[in-house]
Amino acid sequence: MDVFMKGLSKAKEGVVAAAEKTKQGVAEAAGKTKEGVLYVGSKTKEGVVHGVATVAEKTKEQVTNVGGAVVTGVTAVAQKTVEGAGSIAAATGFVKKDQLGKNEEGAPQEGILEDMPVDPDNEAYEMPSEEGYQDYEPEA
């Protein structure tokens, strides 16, 4: 019985440690998101679009440190934060509304985080759909 109880105690310690790591990862992701939003706020009209992409990228980098179902929630929060940063930029006159959601080359930025393969159960990952990809044929 002692062996059984000791095993359960060790398992509990492992769960607590994993929860603490997840909590730490979420806190880091939130900190990076805040950094990115402050970065966007300090940019001029020309830099705002690039700044919004930076927020998304920093958040995406930190999301990889967070495991399990938390990833889905962090990704949703990050996307809403990026959308909010863009709205703030438009409201303050840093950028025109028609410039939001495009990178410096004018290509749409939507789907940055949505296409990231995420499995809350950590069982399997699927690649994003290939609808947006084109076949590449090298020139002879």
Rank of each mutant, 00 (worst) to 15 (best):
E57Q: 10
Y136M: 10
K21R: 08
T81L: 04
D135V: 07
V55M: 13
Y39W: 11
P120T: 03
D115T: 11
A29L: 07
G36Q: 04
P117E: 13
D119T: 15
Y133A: 08
L38V: 15
E61S: 08
P128R: 13
E13G: 06
G14C: 13
K96V: 15
A91M: 14
L38W: 12
V40F: 12
Q62W: 06
Q99A: 11
G101A: 13
S129Y: 09
Q134P: 11
A17F: 10
M5D: 00
T33A: 06
Y39C: 05
L38T: 04
V77D: 02
A89W: 14
D115P: 10
N103E: 06
T44W: 13
K45P: 00
E137W: 05
E105W: 12
Y39D: 12
Y136D: 02
M5K: 07
T72F: 00
G47C: 15
A19M: 15
T92K: 08
V66G: 02
E20D: 03
S129C: 05
A69L: 02
E114N: 09
A30W: 15
N65M: 05
A53M: 14
P120N: 04
M127G: 05
K21A: 09
G25S: 12
E35P: 03
K58S: 06
M5Y: 01
G47A: 15
A124E: 07
G51Q: 02
S9A: 03
V70S: 01
V16W: 06
A90F: 11
L8A: 02
D115Y: 05
A78H: 12
V66L: 07
I88A: 06
K32S: 11
G73Q: 14
Q62D: 07
E35K: 07
V15G: 04
T72A: 08
P138S: 02
K97W: 15
T64L: 11
G73W: 11
A27T: 09
A107H: 10
M5A: 02
K6G: 01
F4S: 00
V48C: 08
E114G: 11
V26W: 11
G7P: 01
V74A: 12
A53R: 14
P108D: 06
A76G: 07
I88Y: 13
A56E: 01
E35F: 12
K96Q: 12
A124P: 12
G84E: 09
G93Q: 05
G86N: 07
T59L: 06
Q109L: 10
K60T: 06
E83M: 14
E139T: 02
S129W: 12
A30T: 08
G111V: 15
T64E: 03
G132V: 02
K45Q: 14
P128G: 04
G67A: 10
V71F: 15
V3P: 00
P117I: 11
A27R: 11
D115H: 05
A76D: 07
D2G: 01
G7E: 05
Q99Y: 09
P108Q: 15
V52H: 02
A30Y: 14
D121I: 08
A91K: 09
N103F: 11
T44R: 02
E35A: 06
E46H: 09
G31Y: 10
Q99V: 13
T81D: 03
D115E: 09
Q134N: 09
G41L: 10
K45R: 09
V70Y: 05
Q24W: 11
V37P: 01
D121Y: 13
K6I: 12
G36P: 03
E130P: 10
A17N: 13
A124G: 09
V118D: 12
S9H: 05
Q109I: 07
G31F: 11
E123F: 02
D121L: 05
V70I: 12
A90D: 03
T59V: 07
P128V: 04
D135A: 03
Q134C: 10
T81I: 08
T44H: 04
L38M: 09
E139K: 11
F94L: 13
T64H: 07
V37F: 08
K80M: 12
A124T: 15
G51D: 02
N65G: 09
E126N: 05
G36K: 06
E114D: 15
G101V: 14
T54Y: 12
A53V: 10
P138I: 01
V82G: 10
E57D: 05
P138M: 12
E123R: 07
L100N: 09
A76E: 08
K58W: 02
P117T: 10
P117H: 04
N122H: 08
G86W: 07
Y39T: 13
G68I: 14
A85P: 04
K10S: 02
S42A: 12
M127T: 06
E104Q: 00
A27P: 00
T33M: 11
V118Q: 15
